[in-house]
Amino acid sequence: MTTPSSLPAGHDALTDVTVLMPAYNAQDDVERTLASFVEHAPVRVLIVDDGSTPPIVAPTLPNLVVEILRMPQNGGIERALQAGIDALAARGCRYAARIDAGDLAAPGRLAKQRAYLEAHPNVAGVGMWTQVVSRDGQPLFMLRPATEPDAIRRLRFLRSQFVHPAMMLRVDAVRAVGNYRIAYRAAEDLDLFLRLMERYDCANLPELGLYYELNEGGISATKRRRQIVSTLRLQMRYFNVTNVCDWLGLAKNLLHLVTPYTALGRVKRALFATHSA
């Protein structure tokens, strides 16, 4: 495994950035995802192996420095991300760039997000627009959330404003608000973003940063009811009665609770396809 001291001299543009990827029994997806990073500087990666059997092996890829943090047993993405953030803080890392095994990074994503955070010190997290693709790589629809902090706050419950694996986060800000938590299972990202937005701004870059693989076996599908219940709990905790979008978002998630996943997927594809046309 390559170590930080063996990086080529002069290539320091991303030395304070680390890609944070939790993984569980996904060796092939891990390798495919990491191979997608194309940057003009070496890319550091921390894989949090959440009790995989067999254990995840660090792939040898050009321009990447890969380290693995092994969890003692499978404890879920919330604990894996919490441990990953703590490990990055201990290493002095400033920025954590999230991605999930199976997703692909657009070229230059890390440099663009880091430059934005460097220029906007009150922004704790910045995402990017995302192309959703099928398991065989076919484009399905684009996710173009709001870019400005005020719009994101207003629309936070009406429509998801961040694609979690497309985010770059300030490690110190994440820890300052309590890190990832297990209190809202399968909605750990929304929980974190809401806490961040109480103290900082969050934003999105209006350009493609990620190819998100729609996996019918992923958390959104297999733990859908738990995710919706956690989201509803968060909506009630942060509900703003003067914001009409909070009311509409509450109605939308109640509808999601009683709508079959396959039917909901078809509706989403149709709506996003129409919006993208």
Rank of each mutant, 00 (worst) to 15 (best):
A83S: 12
A83K: 06
A83F: 05
G84Y: 13
A89S: 14
A89M: 08
G92L: 05
C93H: 01
R94Y: 02
Y95K: 00
R98L: 15
I99C: 07
D100V: 12
D100W: 04
A101E: 12
D103G: 03
D103M: 09
D103K: 08
L104C: 03
A106Y: 01
A106D: 02
P107H: 02
G108R: 00
R109N: 00
A111Y: 00
A111E: 01
K112T: 04
R114S: 00
Y116C: 00
L117F: 01
L117K: 03
A119M: 06
A119T: 09
P121Q: 11
N122P: 01
A124F: 01
G125S: 15
W129P: 02
Q131K: 07
S134W: 06
S134D: 14
R135Y: 08
G137E: 04
G137M: 05
G137L: 06
Q138C: 03
L140H: 05
F141D: 08
F141V: 09
P145E: 12
A146D: 14
A146E: 15
E148S: 14
A151R: 14
I152Q: 00
R153S: 04
R153A: 02
R154L: 14
R156N: 09
R156K: 13
R156Q: 14
R159T: 13
S160E: 15
Q161R: 07
A166S: 10
M168S: 04
R170G: 06
R170N: 06
V171P: 00
V174H: 02
V177K: 07
G178E: 05
I182N: 13
Y184E: 12
Y184N: 13
A187E: 10
L190C: 04
L192I: 05
F193E: 13
L194M: 13
L194I: 06
L196E: 02
L196V: 03
R199M: 02
Y200M: 05
D201C: 05
C202D: 10
C202K: 11
A203V: 10
A203D: 10
L205K: 07
P206D: 13
P206E: 13
E207H: 09
L208I: 07
L208P: 02
G209A: 03
Y211F: 14
Y212K: 10
L214K: 07
L214F: 06
L214G: 02
E216N: 11
E216W: 13
E216H: 14
E216M: 10
I219G: 00
I219V: 15
S220Y: 12
S220I: 11
T222S: 15
K223V: 01
R225C: 06
Q227S: 14
Q227Y: 10
Q227K: 15
I228D: 12
V229K: 12
V229G: 05
V229Y: 08
V229N: 10
S230K: 02
